[in-house]
Design a protein around this nucleic acid. Structure first.
Length: 467
DNA sequence: TTTTGAGTTGTTCGA
DNA sequence: GTCGAACAACTCAAA
């Protein structure tokens, strides 16, 4: 009866957890371990900090069912080999990842363990449909969203599994690092206390949000999800990122709402499939996370990380809606979906700045950062990605403000220079930012960094003449 | 193999 | 103010 190591990564839940359910059923002691490994090492400030909150909370959930979460730091394979030597474990199980960094790490771990004679098993759970199981009629993977949606929307999805309520414990627990020593929030110079007011950590809150969303919000989701100041989106991206809720539970809840006649549910289900699409693309074309998905964009005259890009990061472009959205992200760790499109369009089109600058900044700031969705979203906006936006689709931040923030509530929440001390969030921004930015709430609001009309014309011409 | 229809999220202009 | 067309051409998926 040798112990089994369950390697926890982005699957911080007890409900509908195929891997954990499988090891619980093996009748052997289970040692859950989280490794601060080579992938975690590279995370941006906010995702890393939020991940720390996530597994600290999950550790307490494991303790409630009589288990523990062992913390170790180092290269994943080395740490696992050490733990196997210490505990006599004969197997390591984990939930599969699909982005290039996870795949590279896990491939090395699997072959290393197998050559040691250790059983290494990966389980499903992070996405709905395994990328290699969804194919076009001619045998390739989908490069366009709508055909993928039509292909998967009626596929069977297994029922959610019941919550794991007990795990056998080993005779002696291996030593664990002290979480505080890892300083997961060390790079959060923007003030974890401020962003901390907005995070929702753990499975219980995720389940409650799914219930609230499918009961009260989903019916009008198609319309209200676009209103910037409304509570009209699912806000499930944060727990989905860390596996605090399973996509399968979201899928079934969405279909249930749909069958109750809540029309907006279909739009929500499509959003879940967009998440699938991003992971399938990351799996089949891993370069999507690092370079232009369409190589013909490699010679486009992008600006890089210059003073203009800094002003975009600071929310000082002079376009109120762009700046409000950038500050929403800085203060809350989240940005409304429509805000993401608007700031991305302004950066890549009006400013003609490389999407990679935006991708990296989002990776540093977003508590719901997801490697696959972030890459797909930026390339979609820039036009360099699959199923990309046509070159002439350039968001006008003023028109968008009229349509989706007509009452100015969203802008007023975050822009102290224009809407003086209107809301706590505007003050929080100036408390959170680095001193080196040298910004104050009483500064004059700047003129537009790139005027809308001229910027649009310039982008249209450059995009048209590409290649 | 060839053909056909379609393709997340927009803006502007002119009738 | 409202509405349809133009903004391009190409790739993708399926028949």
């Amino acid at each position: 009866m040798t112990p089994v190591i369950f390697w926890i990564r982005r699957d911080l839940r007890l409900s509908d957890h195929p891997g954990l359910t499988a090891v619980a059923a093996m009748g052997r002691p289970v040692i859950p371990v989280f490794i601060h490994d080579e992938v975690v090492e590279t995370h941006g400030a906010a995702p890393k900090w939020r991940l720390g909150l996530g597994f600290a909370h999950f550790a307490t959930e494991l303790e409630k069912i009589g288990s523990r979460l062992i913390l170790r730091r180092g290269t994943a394979l080395d740490v696992l080999q050490d733990l196997i030597a210490e505990t006599g474990a004969g197997a390591v199980h984990w939930s599969r990842g699909y982005d290039p960094a996870a795949i590279a790490r896990d491939t090395a771990v699997k072959s290393g363990l197998k050559s040691d004679g250790i059983e290494a098993v990966s389980h499903t759970g992070h996405i709905l449909f395994e990328p290699w199981t969804v194919e076009t009629k001619t045998g390739g993977f989908y490069r366009v969203f709508t055909p993928l949606w039509k292909a998967v929307r009626d596929l069977p999805v297994a029922d959610a599994l019941p919550k794991v309520t007990s795990l056998q414990t080993p005779d002696t627990w291996p030593a664990s690092d002290n979480l505080d020593d890892w300083a997961m929030g060390a790079a959060m110079r923007r003030g974890a206390a401020i962003v901390g007011k907005h995070v929702r950590v753990g499975e219980e809150k995720a389940q409650a949000r799914l219930t609230e969303f499918t009961q009260d919000i989903i019916a009008d989701y198609k319309e209200t999800r676009d209103i910037l100041s409304a509570d009209g989106t699912s806000r499930l991206s944060e727990p989905l990122t860390y596996g605090e809720i399973s996509p399968r539970q979201c899928w079934h809840a969405g279909w249930q709402a749909f069958h109750q006649g809540k029309k907006g549910a279909e739009t929500f289900l499509k959003e879940l499939v967009w998440r699938e699409f991003a992971y399938h693309l990351a799996y089949h074309t891993p370069h999507i996370t690092t370079g232009n998905w369409r190589p013909e964009w490699d010679n486009f005259p992008w600006s890089m990380d210059d003073d203009a890009a800094l002003r975009w990061k600071q929310g000082r472009t002079g376009l109120p809606l762009v700046d409000a959205a950038m500050r929403e992200m800085y203060v809350t760790g989240m940005m409304h979906n429509r805000g993401r499109m608007i700031v991305a369009s302004y950066l890549t089109k009006h400013m003609m700045t490389h999407w990679k600058i935006g991708l990296d900044w989002f990776e540093d700031c977003l508590i719901d950062w997801d490697p696959a969705s972030n890459a797909m979203g930026w390339q979609w906006t820039a036009g360099s990605g699959p199923d990309a936006s046509p070159y002439f689709r350039i968001f006008n931040p003023e028109t968008q403000a009229e349509k989706f923030d007509g009452d100015r509530i969203y802008r007023a929440t975050y822009l102290a220079e224009i809407y003086a001390n209107h809301a706590q969030s505007a003050e929080d921004f100036f408390d959170a930012i680095p001193k080196s930015w040298n910004l104050s709430a009483t500064d004059d609001y700047p003129q537009p960094l790139v005027p809308l009309s001229a910027g649009r014309e310039r982008a249209l011409e450059a995009y048209q003449n590409r290649g």
